[in-house]
């Protein structure tokens, strides 16, 4: 079977996939109450999807993906305060800025081993965190960016207290970006990324321009993360330094790992499980949630991710 034919076959839509999205959009018509949580899930899903692009497909480990998330959040917040309250304009600008940042920092992750990459990505996020903290005149520093008044979506739908508009907005953005990601990973470009992940040397020997591909996918992933950050800023009308913290990078990695990296829906499934568990477990005491998450990670690593997910998927 030729590469094209196999790609076409893999890219075909199956009914469980359609069902997932029908249910996700159907939840919009729930009575108000859970939409704020659903909105958070959609945003985390988009963030995890962006990490999946580099971790699951290209094999780049990142401990600092919050850098792009936070950049997007601050960009959207500042756009809203100083330029225009229109959310779509803010989303586009934040996405583009994050993509540019991804392009710049991608040069740093091309070199060295996994270990260097871990540290460099962590370092980039920390640098941004320090900058945001130091520029407190614009970012509000430790107090956070306050006083955002986000305008109505498309000039018609106001962001309400119950978060239904917010959920609709985030879910639509997630859906559109998901379709784009799905198209991309099922293209020859996506195939070459997977070749790079499996064996970089051999991919290069086959004529895949390894570095160019990695730069491209890193910038793409940064753009997605920036969009997720912008959505969070706009739907909560608040940005704090917390968007750039290590905890956020760890959370998204965890969500992706729960769902399984490398099949796009991993980020979505992981985000749902992560947020629902977090919501129930931290209702008692926040320590419980951290403890169980830690225990889960340790067990997962000891048992082996592959073995566990093979059991689940069977």
């Amino acid at each position: 079977m030729s590469a094209n034919a196999s790609l076409v076959r893999r890219a075909r839509w199956r009914w469980p996939e359609a069902l997932v999205w029908v249910i996700a959009f159907g939840l919009l018509f729930l009575p108000p109450g859970k939409h704020l949580l659903l909105n958070e899930i959609a945003i985390l899903a988009l963030f995890a999807l962006s990490l999946d692009l580099i971790l699951g497909y290209a094999g780049i480990i990142s401990l600092g993906h919050a850098a792009f998330f936070g950049l997007g959040a601050y960009a959207a917040g500042l756009m809203c305060k100083h330029v225009t309250p229109d959310p779509l304009a803010g989303l586009v600008v934040a996405t583009l800025l994050a993509a540019m940042m991804g392009l710049l920092t991608s040069l740093l992750v091309l070199r060295g081993s996994d270990l260097t990459r871990l540290m460099v990505t962590l370092g980039v996020a920390l640098v941004l965190h320090e900058i945001a903290n130091a520029l407190s005149r614009w970012t509000g520093g430790a107090d956070g960016l306050q006083g955002m008044v986000v305008g109505p979506l498309l000039g018609r739908f106001d962001f309400d207290l119950y978060g239904r508009t917010a959920y609709a907005y985030s879910l639509t953005a997630l859906f559109i970006l998901f379709l784009a990601a799905r198209r991309i990973v099922h293209s020859l470009f996506g195939l070459s990324l997977m070749a790079i992940r499996r064996n970089r040397l051999r991919a290069a020997a086959l004529g895949v321009p390894v570095n160019r591909r990695l730069v491209a996918v890193y910038a793409l992933s940064a753009a997605y993360a920036g969009a997720a950050g912008a959505l969070l800023a706009q739907t909560t009308a608040y940005v704090s330094l917390e968007v750039l913290e290590f905890g956020r990078s760890a959370d998204v990695l965890l969500a992706l790992i729960i769902g399984g990296a490398g099949w796009l829906y991993g980020g979505l499934a992981g985000a749902v499980i992560f947020k629902v568990l977090q919501d129930t477990l931290s209702a008692g005491a926040p320590q419980f949630w951290m403890f169980w998450m830690g225990l889960f990670l340790v067990v997962l690593a000891l048992v082996g991710r592959d073995r566990l997910f093979r059991l689940v998927r069977r």
């Binding site: 871990l118 990695l253 965890l254 320590q287 419980f288 951290m290 403890f291 997962l300 000891l302």
Partner: peptide, 27 residues
């Protein structure tokens, strides 16, 4: 058991340990 695993597994494992330690100490 973790020496021969990939770096990603080691990262997940040790972050998990940190979380447990932080939560237990806090509690």
């Amino acid at each position: 058991h973790m020496y021969s695993r990939t770096h990603l597994d080691q990262v997940l494992f040790s972050i998990g340990l940190v979380f447990i330690a932080v939560a237990a100490t806090d509690y």
